[in-house]
Simulated scan of single mutants.
Amino acid sequence: MKAIVCNDFGSISDLKLQEIEAPTPGKGEVLIKVLATGVNFPDGLLVQGLYQAKPACPFVPGMEFCGEVEALGEGVKHLKVGQRLIGSSKDFGGFAEKIVANAMMVLPITDDVPNTDAANLMCAHGTAHHALKQRARLKKGETLVVLGAAGGTGIAAVQIGKAMGARVIAACSSQEKLEMAKENGADELINYSDENLKDRIKELTKGKGADVVYDPVGGEAFAACSRSMARNGRLLVVGFASGSIPELPVNLTLVKEYSVIGVFWGSFVMHEPMIFMQNMQELFAWYREGAVRLQTDEVFPLSRTQDALAKVMNREVKGKVVVVPDALLD
């Protein structure tokens, strides 16, 4: 089968499309023909050796996928050959024509969910959902500030924040991106390229500050939000798309009495798989109601996975991009 292989940690351009042996499902596993694979910021970090996890090289990257069951491993009774599903794998492997996954970490999907939507639903929306529901315990009527609100996980946070009843303030680096955030439900907009983020948050909250901040950006935006929190607020550390890991003057948390909370979706999925599955069921319900929508910016063939990752890492994506095996695009 064909797969994108990371032979050594390094530049995204070093990734190779190679012919490798197809995997075989073991006990409790399922072999899946990949139909589409979501492309996420952590994928780009992973191949550069900059992510929390560092798999042994060579390996096939790719965290989330939509596919069709091709073979069942020993003991797998709840799935059947030909069934369409979504999933993730702790060993990655999504940028390939086939993947083996734990049968308990995949979820059957119905025919009304397109492959591209399905492939992109788990990681970004799953992260935002876990962050706002389990980590922040976002309440109806609270004010949520979403940084990077036009990226895949930012749009997800805007949509899910609205579904949970919050007032959502979207912060982006351009007017074009803000318009996308508005189309996805944001109540208020801040262009932090032109406006002072801290002052605007204070102004829009009438001096109270944000109840919850969803931050996948880091850098200066985090620093501004750390000074813009309401009492009992929750500042969610989701990622560092800016490339800068900020430092926190912890005296701010003491004086303002707010919490800084880390969000690591991969750890959540591994340690709380049943709650993860409950979250996914709720996400699909919101999807069918139209409260959650997938914004697919571009579809790339598997052979151009490097280009897809570069687009994500350069923060040129509005929504998500997806990779599809070349044979399925012919």
Rank of each mutant, 00 (worst) to 15 (best):
H125G: 09
C6E: 00
K16I: 04
L236D: 13
M274P: 00
R288M: 09
T143S: 14
F240L: 11
G161D: 09
G38T: 08
M270V: 02
T37F: 04
F240G: 01
M63H: 01
A150H: 04
V30L: 05
D215W: 10
K33W: 05
E272D: 14
S193C: 04
R227C: 13
P25T: 06
G49W: 00
P42L: 02
V106K: 03
F65V: 05
T127A: 09
I109A: 04
L46C: 07
E195R: 04
G151N: 03
S193W: 06
G262Y: 10
F222D: 01
P216S: 11
G185W: 13
S226R: 00
T205R: 04
Q159R: 09
Q295T: 03
G239T: 02
F284K: 02
P273C: 12
K77V: 10
V324A: 10
E19S: 13
T153E: 13
S173H: 09
Q48D: 00
D307G: 00
D199K: 15
Q134E: 15
A157Y: 10
M270C: 05
V317W: 07
L147R: 01
P325D: 08
G266H: 03
P23K: 00
V146A: 11
T127Y: 11
A3C: 15
G262F: 03
E298L: 06
M274S: 08
C225Y: 04
F300L: 07
Y287M: 09
S88Y: 15
V312R: 00
V212G: 08
G319L: 06
A71Y: 12
P216F: 14
M63D: 02
F41T: 04
P249D: 14
A128I: 14
F41R: 00
E21G: 02
